[in-house]
């Protein structure tokens, strides 16, 4: 965690009455990165963003945003960021175009050329009254207002809620462009695929705490590749390869059916052994963050579904320790 981070949150606590919405949350967003902020519903994502905006006051912990204190310097800092709330609500009597301008004006305006371009790309009719918009169209109005802003930091709370896949794609393209312009993005979401497509780094939170955080590459390295092969002879020495687990070798007619999972660093070694046994077919499933994501959520949820065989018993292994902020797996199953 460097001092010039755009967002630095340490040990953040916020309670609403008896509910502890944030319980020692940590978060660091570096300049120029797209940071995925993942968590299930009710994990505290929106509350964290509200604290970052000075809308809600932290009970404990330290919060820095763009080098300032979000509560005391709220309006000064807000000129440098744009925010998309999780629950978009527009003024029913105004048109979409008017709402867009009003939302943008609240943060100090937008880039005209970008507004025109984004209205076009998101296929928005700005002359319609907001009350007549569908949920997706309301979302688009707020999205354009945020994305057309000339901001250093974008705080996006579940930005693609209600968008169709085509518009989701457009959204991803625009975020890539903004990132290329040097804009930092904090992207809150519960959709792994969206974060995987956009984020450089990811923080996963649950029950108001950070479960894990790290770059996508880090996380990928710590997820496992599943391998399914059919070989002519039984492969030897696989059990001895470091990193191989869940090994199942079964005869399948004249061939041998082999299944196992392996971490990224030892994939080459393992596949070498298969090769030596003369490969017939080979299916390699790339590491999916979904698995990691689900596991981070589930690990002490009561009544969680039993694991599929491939990953049984390796919950703790699958969660990487990055930046010494490993929190999951305590008392897991």
């Amino acid at each position: 965690m460097s001092t010039d981070d755009v967002v630095t949150v340490r040990g953040l606590v916020k309670t609403f009455g008896a509910v502890r919405a944030l319980d020692g949350l940590d978060l660091a967003v570096a300049p120029g990165e797209v940071h995925g902020f993942l968590g299930p519903n009710g994990a505290g994502k929106s509350t964290t963003l509200r604290v970052l905006l000075g809308l809600v006051r932290a009970d404990a912990g330290s919060v820095r945003l763009l080098g300032g204190d979000p509560w005391h310097d709220a309006t000064r800092l807000h000129g440098r960021l744009a925010y998309l709330p999780g629950d978009v609500s527009l003024w029913p009597g105004l048109t979409g175009g008017q709402c867009l301008d009003v939302l943008a004006a609240a943060r100090g305006g937008l880039v005209e050329s970008r507004r025109r371009e984004l209205v076009e790309r998101f296929d928005l009719d700005p002359t319609k009254r907001a009350r007549d918009y569908s949920k997706g169209n309301r979302q688009k109005v707020a999205l354009v207002a945020a994305l057309a802003a000339d901001a250093e930091l974008l705080l996006l709370d579940e930005p693609t809620a209600g968008l169709d896949p085509l518009m989701e794609r457009t959204f991803q393209d625009v975020v890539h462009e903004r990132r290329a312009d040097g804009v930092t993005v904090l992207l809150s979401s519960h959709l792994m695929a969206e974060v995987e497509a956009l984020a450089d780094r990811v923080s996963i939170i649950r029950h108001g705490r950070t479960v894990t955080t790290g770059s996508l590459a880090d996380l990928r390295r710590h997820t496992r590749t599943t391998v399914h092969a059919v070989t002519s002879t039984e492969p030897t020495g696989l059990r001895a390869v470091t990193g191989v687990a869940d090994l199942v070798i079964e005869p399948a007619g004249p061939h041998t059916d082999v299944r196992f999972s392996v971490d990224a660093d030892h994939l080459d070694d393992a596949v070498g052994r298969l090769h030596a046994a003369r490969l017939h077919t080979l299916t390699v499933q790339p590491p999916s963050l979904d698995t990691l994501f689900l596991r981070s959520y589930d690990s002490d949820a009561p009544g969680a579904p039993p694991d599929d065989g491939a990953h049984a018993g390796r919950v703790d292994d699958s969660i990487p320790e990055v930046d010494g902020r490993h929190r999951a797996g305590r008392g897991a199953r």
Binding site: L53, L55, P85, S89, A105, A106, G108
Partner: peptide, 11 residues
């Protein structure tokens, strides 16, 4: 929910 985005600006 319309107050939040306004206060998230420079107002």
């Amino acid at each position: 929910g319309r107050l939040e985005p306004q206060l998230a600006g420079t107002v």
